[in-house]
Amino acid sequence: MINIIKSTFEDSINCKNEIYLKNEVYEVNTYPLKDTNNNINNTLVLMYNVTSDKISKNKLLQANKMMAIGELAAGIAHEIRNPLGIIRNHSFILRSYSNTNINKSLDYIDNAVRRASRIIDNILNFSRISGDTEEFVNIGEFIHNILELQVKNLQKQGISYKVECINNYKFLINQESLKHILINLLSNAMDAIEENGEIIVKAYEYDEGILIEFIDNGIGINAENIEKIFNPFYTSKEPGKGTGLGLYITYNEVKKLKGDISIESKLGFGTKFKVYLPAGGNSNEGSI
């Protein structure tokens, strides 16, 4: 702020800049005020809180990115599925003419084709826009799919993961919102661990809804920062490594589904996020 006012005095020009103050973003405009002798003795300072505008722009940008990714993923999936279909069909034909050794090789080919198909399905599920539609989601499978999208980065950082959820547990929910919640919590956990750690995701029925626990053994969060963790633009990461919107968006997605989110953390030991979501986003809010 002082530098902006100083520039206005020294250069006799209007200045415009953005400053961050207590997790809020302000647009600062300064104007030199001249007296009757044309000397600048005062500066007019106007400040506008543009936090909501910044958040809206970031959300719109993210939505446009997701739409572009969805269109790209659909095109790539179509192009890749065609040759995979040819490989699968010819593998089936070859089995009728082959011996045991060749059949073993064909098994490897079929397994690779199935794996490639699963990867394509994951990418399409991740990138599709579902709007406000609610549907029954296989929770365990959905969590695994989110984690598998980051499996290379998890392996690179030496992070193992475990999912604890009953088989074929289906829950009525907005898939797009759940996706944003899990992706942001996963990203936060990976940043907290940095390398050689563990992430555990638990999901189970609770109070006529679902409770999801996201646990990491990373660096943890000190008590004074826990109060700020869901504030917009708050980040403890190095400059350029985070927007400070990830957990803010997570909080808003949870509230949009009429749920609740809480956090337990101990510096040096790790963090646990607990997310409660009512079935179908109904009006019965639970507490955790």
Rank of each mutant, 00 (worst) to 15 (best):
E227W: 12
D191T: 11
F230A: 02
T235E: 05
P278M: 02
G268L: 09
E194N: 13
K266A: 06
F230M: 07
V275I: 15
S236I: 14
A223S: 14
L267S: 12
Y276C: 09
N225W: 02
T243D: 08
A279D: 13
E253K: 15
I200G: 03
I193T: 10
I249M: 14
N217R: 14
F269H: 10
G280P: 03
G218F: 06
E213S: 12
E198N: 15
L277S: 07
P232W: 07
N196P: 00
P278R: 08
G270D: 00
I261N: 01
Y206Q: 13
I193A: 01
G270S: 03
E264F: 10
F214R: 04
V201P: 01
I212G: 03
V201N: 07
K272M: 15
I263S: 03
S236D: 10
N196W: 03
G270M: 03
V275K: 06
I210L: 15
F214W: 11
N225T: 05
Y204S: 13
D216Q: 06
F214V: 14
K228R: 12
I221S: 04
E224I: 14
T271H: 08
S187M: 14
E224H: 10
D260W: 10
I212W: 02
G197V: 06
L267P: 00
E194R: 13
N222D: 15
G268H: 05
I215S: 09
N196Q: 09
L245S: 08
D216W: 11
L247N: 02
K241C: 10
E194F: 09
G197C: 10
P239S: 07
I212E: 08
N222G: 08
K266C: 09
S265W: 11
K256P: 00
Y251V: 02
K228M: 12
K256W: 02
G270K: 02
L267K: 15
S265K: 02
I249N: 11
K241H: 13
N196E: 10
L247I: 09
G246N: 04
G280L: 03
S262G: 01
I199C: 04
N231G: 05
Y204K: 12
N222P: 01
K266H: 04
Y234F: 15
P239Y: 04
A189E: 01
F269R: 11
L211E: 05
G246E: 02
L267C: 04
G244Y: 07
K241G: 08
A189H: 00
D207N: 13
K255Q: 03
G220S: 07
E238L: 15
P239G: 01
L257N: 11
T235L: 03
I221A: 04
A192D: 12
L211Q: 06
G268C: 09
E194A: 14
L211P: 00
L245G: 01
I199N: 04
I263W: 07
L245P: 03
K241I: 09
P278N: 02
E213N: 05
F230N: 06
K266R: 12
S236T: 13
E253A: 12
A223Q: 15
G209Y: 05
L211A: 09
K237V: 02
I212H: 01
V254K: 01
I212V: 06
T235Q: 01
L267I: 14
I199Q: 08
G268K: 00
E208P: 06
I229Q: 05
D216A: 09
L245H: 04
S236V: 13
E208Q: 13
I210H: 11
G218P: 00
K266D: 10
K272W: 02
S265H: 11
G209Q: 00
E253M: 12
F269C: 10
Y251W: 11
K255C: 11
Y248S: 06
